[in-house]
Computed example of a mutant assay.
Amino acid sequence: MGLNDHGNEELRLAYDDLVDEGLIDPASDEAGVARQVIDQGFDSMSPRQKHIYESRFEPVLVRRAKQLEVQRIIDSNPD
C-alpha cells in the first residue's frame, strides 16, 4: 500500500456510503471527481474539477460524517 492508499480507501468507503444512501448520484460531476480523487489523487484534477469537488462533494461528505458521528454518540449512550 502506498502512502495515500489508506486515505483513499476511507474516501472510497465514504463515497460508496453516499451513493448507497442516495446522497450522491453516481452519474453526477461530483461523483466523477470524487472517483478521480480516489483513483488518482487530488493533484490529478484540473482547477475546475477541484472546484466541483470542494463545493459539491465535500459538503455532502462532511454533512454525512457529522450525521454518523451524532448517531454514534446517540448509540453509545445508555438508555
Rank of each mutant, 00 (worst) to 15 (best):
V70T: 12
A31H: 06
K66G: 00
R12K: 12
G7L: 10
F42I: 12
E69V: 11
Q36K: 15
Q67E: 15
R72F: 11
G2S: 13
H51T: 15
V60N: 01
R48V: 15
P26W: 06
D75Y: 08
R64N: 01
V19P: 03
N4T: 13
L3E: 05
I73T: 05
Q36G: 04
L18M: 05
E58K: 13
I73V: 12
D29Q: 11
I74C: 02
E69M: 12
A34V: 11
G32W: 04
S44L: 11
V37W: 01
E30S: 12
V70A: 06
A34D: 01
V33D: 00
D20G: 01
N4S: 03
N77R: 10
V70H: 15
P59A: 09
P78N: 12
R35L: 15
G7E: 07
D5K: 06
G2A: 11
P26N: 06
Q36N: 09
I74V: 15
V70N: 07
D75W: 05
I52C: 01
D79S: 09
G2V: 08
E9Q: 07
A34G: 01
R63Y: 05
E21N: 04
E54K: 12
I74S: 00
R63V: 09
G22L: 04
G41L: 04
L61F: 10
F42R: 11
Q67D: 10
E69H: 06
V62A: 00
G32H: 06
R64F: 14
R56W: 10
F42N: 03
D29C: 05
L18G: 04
N77W: 14
N4P: 01
